[in-house]
């Protein structure tokens, strides 16, 4: 049964890479506007869970529903269109297009969704200001620091006004001060725009920016247990 008001809901996800199981019956649900941390040791299946939830990979079995649509029954093209329209992504590194400036990178998802260049660039500049990196608007990813690059990536993820942001170890390559600033800006901006966030992290201090946590162990996801 789908929990009332759930935006994204996965049931009994199984996924194996060759003979190695990554997900072994994982369940997950996400409500609009909430920030959920997906935690667990390396190799527990947490990134695979995120990729299945976001429709990047298809599970071997199980279902993922987004609103009233079933991701697992969509074609690749339909899932791709859904990701562009409704989802935003922040990864550990490497997601910015190296040939484009920070401004062009942030404007890219808006342009792909049909926004006119001038409007896309105006909105992109506002997002860069919001993420405190408007000073590097005209620089390419190779010319900015790791912390600045990650803020540009957050700006890009949020610029298309997604309903869900998928963040996979977004602070993994940053020092603690930069990591915390990125988390603070990401979660503030997501809450303001009512975007839900699925945050994969193995760092407790990063998970502390979430509303609740789900722990993945041996391919099974467990909700945080309330203390008695």
């Amino acid at each position: 049964m789908i929990p009332a008001g759930s935006l994204l809901h996965a049931v009994a996800l199984h996924k194996a890479y060759g003979r190695t199981p990554a997900l072994d019956g994982a369940d997950f649900s996400l409500h609009p506007g909430e920030v959920v941390a997906v935690m667990g040791p390396s190799g527990s299946g947490k990134s695979t869970l995120l990729h299945c939830l976001a429709g990047i990979i298809a599970p071997d079995s199980g279902t993922v529903r987004y609103g009233d649509r079933e991701l697992t029954a969509m074609s690749d093209a339909e899932r791709s269109a859904l990701r562009r329209a409704d989802f935003g992504f922040v990864f550990q590194f490497g997601q910015l297009v190296p040939e484009l400036t920070a401004l062009e990178n942030v404007a890219l998802p808006l342009r792909l969704n049909g926004t006119r260049r001038r409007d896309a660039e105006r909105q992109a500049r506002e997002w860069l200001e919001r993420l405190e990196v408007d000073t590097v608007a005209d620089r390419r990813p190779g010319e900015v620091s790791g912390g600045q690059g990650q803020r540009v990536a957050v700006a890009r993820a949020l610029a298309g006004r997604p309903r869900v942001v998928f963040a996979d170890e977004p602070t993994g390559a940053l020092d603690s001060l930069n990591g915390e600033r990125v988390m603070s800006l990401l979660t503030d901006a997501a809450r303001d725009t009512r975007a839900a966030v699925v945050l994969v992290t193995h760092e407790a201090r990063v998970a502390a920016y979430s509303d609740r946590e789900v722990v993945v162990r041996d391919g099974i996801a467990r909700e945080g247990v309330a203390a008695v």
């Binding site: 603070s184 407790a204 998970a207 920016y209 945080g224 247990v225 309330a226 203390a227």
Partner: peptide, 23 residues
């Protein structure tokens, strides 16, 4: 394992409060 899960939740609850206070 359940004991450790319960403790993790409690630690994270406290960490959320501290993180909010920091913000």
């Amino acid at each position: 394992a359940e004991l450790l899960d319960t403790q993790r939740t409690e630690h994270l609850r406290l960490m959320r409060g501290l993180t909010e206070r920091k913000r």
